[in-house]
């Protein structure tokens, strides 16, 4: 046995003793309350499992990250229309079915409060406390006329599909919700 073999064996043993944290990636592509909820539940639970969790928010998923006071965003009239119809922030999300002009989410959130289920907003804060990386997608931000100022603080740098794929290549759990 050469010294080099011993070195590589020692390195391998060290690797087994302190394994790198598993990675979990979630692509949050929906602004529906019933999708945002599982996104944030799984992200925080992944962090509780000691995983390095990154949530990549794209398309309507960006609504979850919008500040409540973001108002009408963008320069183009079509972007402004989006701001009129999609208010953003976890409190304003609608349900994918049974929305009934906001009646559905109102009932759902009431039930959640009565049952002590953490809200999407609370889970979002908790995720940030637990070190979950929240990445907004640059392309959809541009498309929808959103700037960094329209989004909550403490987010990762806006990234693209390449960064998402690069993360998912090494992740043991990748979800598209």
């Amino acid at each position: 046995m050469t010294a080099q073999d011993t070195d590589s064996e020692a390195a391998a043993a060290e690797e087994t003793e302190t394994p790198a944290a598993d990675k979990m990636v979630i692509i949050a592509a929906s602004g529906d309350l019933d999708k945002a909820w599982p996104v944030m539940l799984l992200a925080t639970t992944g962090a509780a499992y000691g995983m390095d969790v990154t949530v990549f928010f794209t398309f309507w998923g960006l609504e979850i990250l919008k500040r409540p006071d973001s108002g009408i965003t963008g320069d183009d009239w079509r972007q402004k229309m989006l701001g009129v119809f999609r208010k953003g922030s976890p409190d304003k999300l609608g349900l994918s079915t049974m929305n009934f002009a906001g009646m559905g989410p109102w009932m759902m959130k009431g039930l959640a409060t009565d049952n002590n289920v953490a809200s999407v907003g609370e889970l979002l804060e908790l995720a940030q406390d637990m070190g979950v990386e929240l990445w907004p997608c640059q392309m959809t931000m541009d498309l929808m006329g959103l700037s960094n100022d329209d989004l909550i603080a403490g987010l990762g740098k806006p990234a693209g599909a390449g960064s998402a794929i690069s993360l998912m290549k090494d992740a043991s759990i990748s979800l598209f919700i």
């Binding site: 639970t45 049952n115 002590n116």
Partner: peptide, 9 residues
Amino acid sequence: GLQCPMPVI
């Protein structure tokens, strides 16, 4: 009083 996933978290 806390629901899933809060006990684990």
